[in-house]
Amino acid sequence: MKNRVFEEFLARFGSGARLYAAPGRVNLIGEHTDYNGGFVLPGAIDRCIWLAVRPAAGRRSRIWSVDFDEGIELNIADEPPRVSWARYIYGVVSEMARRGVDVPAFDAVFGGDIPSGAGLSSSAALESVFAFALNDLSERKLTPVELARAGQMTEHRYIGVRCGIMDQMISLLGERDRVMRLDCRSLEYEMIPFRPEGCRLVLIDSMVSHSLAGTEYNLRRSQCERGVAIIARHVPRVTLLRDVGLDMLDTYRSEMDEWVYRRCRYVIEENVRLLIGCDRLRSGDYAGFGEKMFESHRGLSQEYGVSCGELDFIQEIARGYDGVLGSRMMGGGFGGCVLNLVSDGACESFLDEVDRRYAARYGLHPRTIDVVIGGGARRLE
């Protein structure tokens, strides 16, 4: 895809392009905690959005998508484009302008090898590669964290997804063989080694599509906010679920409906699981880390209510399979993938077992995606 993007640029716009890449991501544990000010543990992957770009005269930018086989002309003085993928680029340029960057007009071609619909944050990779590249082409430089905020606000203002900042942070700042323990309130982070010798990460795609802009994602966020608002009436220092412990939550449980209570309880417990999991990674205890992955899925399915029958079915097979150290659904939910930490010796037979049983139950063959933890956004020579 990298070569294809570069060759497409040559054919459409000629020479002079710079080439950039920004990766998708997996999140090992810590789901739906980011917008609650909690902790997440993502890793960048070796699948990217590739971008060839050069400055252009005037105010109108010409952009071609290899993946969608279509192009647009863009000017941030105009209304946001109707083409869905173009709104991400329009949003990034607009958000950078809000932050004082005079983004030049540009010619660009982009394409990706991030599997679509698998919850690997191809949208954040698209935002990040354009933000990183346009920042490189501009005189006024933003920090990676400022670029991540520009990507996050693109989602909020132009896409309608009230996401956290995890996806953009790891896409911009990821490191090979390391995962990021990110504090989503302070944006402080620690890069933790992730080199599980003798085992590997593999995604199993349920082939059930999902939409993060759907009502259920935003509903979960509003339920968490309602729980915080109830507690804050009694404890004014509370502004996010990050500020709440289980004892405090239980103190005011009677003022919440059952669903608000369960959503809040899941988030609080997930933060604790993640911090324990990080300790286990630091000590090289990958089996112990896998236990926290199993617990995370149970919470996502039973307490937060964002799983589905297909995801639960795959995870049940994993939980009962010798050689699978950990397994959990990943992403916004209601479809997408299950992330598995599997010993090398068991991986092939495990995937065969899932394929056979899933096809018998649902009439579909799930897609499998090997995960390699790679680097963040970068310019390529």
Rank of each mutant, 00 (worst) to 15 (best):
D136N: 07
R176A: 14
D250A: 13
R140T: 15
I204S: 01
G100T: 14
D243S: 06
G376K: 08
I170C: 05
E190L: 01
I373H: 06
A377I: 15
D183R: 08
R357L: 14
Y90V: 15
E73N: 04
A52E: 05
L147K: 06
R25N: 02
Y88H: 07
V53R: 00
E188N: 09
N271R: 02
D78M: 07
L137E: 04
V306A: 01
A359R: 11
G290T: 07
L241V: 14
C199V: 14
R226K: 13
C48T: 14
G288K: 09
D167M: 04
I204T: 15
A148T: 10
G111A: 06
I170Q: 08
P81R: 01
T143S: 12
G331D: 08
G160H: 03
Y35M: 06
K292N: 13
G71K: 09
G332V: 15
N36H: 12
R263Q: 12
G71E: 14
G100H: 10
S209N: 10
F334M: 07
L241F: 07
S206F: 03
S128H: 05
D177Y: 00
R181M: 13
L351S: 05
M329V: 11
G363Q: 08
S84T: 13
A229D: 12
A86H: 11
F106M: 03
R99T: 11
Y217E: 09
E7C: 06
E188F: 03
A57Q: 11
A118C: 15
L41Y: 03
E155W: 06
I29Q: 00
